[in-house]
Each structure stands twice: as C-alpha cells, then as structure tokens.
C-alpha cells in the first residue's frame, strides 16, 4: 500500500500535474477578488476567509476527475480491481495520496493568499488550520464522484457538479470556524469539531462508496 501512495504522489508531482495546477488555480481565484471588490481593506478582511475557502474548494475539485480515470485509461484499474486486498482500502490510500499531492499544497499556499485578502495573523492561522482539517473531506467526497464518472469520457465537470452539494457542509463549518476564531463572541471549538467529524465521516464512507461504484463500472 505504501508503494501505491508513493507512486500516486510521484505522479501528481511529475505529470506537470495536479499539484501545481491546483495551486495556480487557487491563486488565480483569490488574486482576482481584490480587483473585483475594490480597495476597501475592511471589506476584504471581512470576506477573506470565505474567499480563501471557496478558492481552495474549487481548486481541490479541479484534479479529482482523473483520480480513477487515469488508472482506467492505461488498464491499471483492472489489476487494482482483481487484487485480494479490499478495494476500499486501496481507494482510501489513493485518496490520501491525492490529498497529499494536491490538497496539502493548497493548505501550504493559503497563508500567502490570505495576505492578499488583508487578513490578520489569527485569521490566517485559523484558515490554514481549518483547511488542513477540512480539505481531506473534499477529497474523500470527490472520490465517490470520480468513481461514478470513471467510465465517462468527459466526466470532469460532471464530477465537480455531483460532488459540490456534498461539500457544502464542509465549506459552511470551515468558514464559520474561521470566523469564530476572529470574532470574539462565537466559540471556535464547536464548528471546528464538526468539521473534523465531517472529515472522519467521509473518510469512512467515501472509500466504501467509491469502491462500490468502481465495481459496478467494470460491467
């Protein structure tokens, strides 16, 4: 399983691939907002956490459709499906590798982009922490969409549309936890714990559902 993780990580870095494209897209989305909103610094810092979260969400969805499609295209998926190891475990490892290859760079880039939005240190830290905890959930949810659309030749946009509604709770609690850290009366911990719970829930459900969808896809 370790070899699968390392291979996928290598592929996401080497294919001119997922990792850098996602970060560039994230940067583009966040960087144009100040131009659109205008030079109102207070407004920027108020909407900053939400913009950074939305940018990260969209960037995380960007490379997801290739998660299983690339394996199917070159025939590797057949071999993966035939193995004795539970398919859900294989999918889980692939999700982890995908997150480490494309999600983690987004988390690392988020403080820099938060500066564009005139956010203070606490807000930057909170955005980074909530993204770190919340972004794996996006990958696990997305894996289900990617598995459903694996046989479709142009499934890219379809995956994003299928997956987006399910990521809304992650977005809501991610952003509200970030605001709670900045604005005093609201407590930080409850939304943050729910965010962590969402990630754990989807880490358990996502691979199972994706494995089921992949089994169906080969028929």
């Amino acid at each position: 399983m370790m070899s699968l993780f390392l291979r996928d990580l290598k592929l996401s870095v080497r294919a001119g691939g997922g990792a850098l494209i996602g970060v560039l897209f994230f940067m583009t989305v966040v960087a144009v907002v100040p131009f659109g909103v205008g030079p109102d610094l207070n407004l920027l810092s108020r909407i900053g956490p939400a913009i950074v979260w939305i940018g990260a969400l969209l960037a995380a969805l960007l490379g997801l459709d290739r998660l299983f499609q690339a394996e199917r295209d070159d025939g590797s998926l057949d071999l993966i499906l035939m193995q004795e190891t539970p398919l859900a475990l294989t999918v889980f490892v692939k999700c982890l590798a995908h997150w480490a290859g494309t999600g983690l760079p987004l988390v690392i880039a988020s403080p820099l982009l938060s500066l564009f939005m005139n956010m203070n240190e606490v807000a930057i830290g909170a955005v980074m922490l909530t993204l770190l905890v919340g972004s794996p959930a996006i990958t696990f949810i997305g894996a289900v969409g990617a598995a459903v659309a694996v046989a479709l030749p142009r499934g890219g946009l379809l995956v994003s549309i299928l997956v987006l509604p399910f990521t809304i709770p992650v977005l809501i609690f991610g952003v509200s936890a970030t605001y709670a850290a900045v604005e005093d009366p609201a407590p930080f911990l409850p939304p943050f714990m729910i965010l962590a719970a969402l990630t754990l829930l989807f880490a358990a459900l996502g691979p199972l559902a994706a494995a089921g969808a992949l089994r169906q896809s080969s028929d």
């Binding site: 291979r7 290598k10 592929l11 080497r14 294919a15 691939g17 295209d73 070159d74 025939g75 590797s76 057949d78 071999l79 035939m82 193995q83 004795e84």
Partner: peptide
C-alpha cells in the same frame, strides 16, 4: 480465479510518466 491471476489486456497498465 482473479486473485490468483495476472491479467494482461490490450493496455499495458504502466504509467508513461514513470
């Protein structure tokens, strides 16, 4: 039988980038 088998189909199941 699949668990005890190699399957070599039309595609090679190798990554061109690696």
């Amino acid at each position: 039988a699949g668990e005890a088998a190699h399957y070599l189909g039309h595609r090679n199941a190798m990554k061109p980038e690696l």
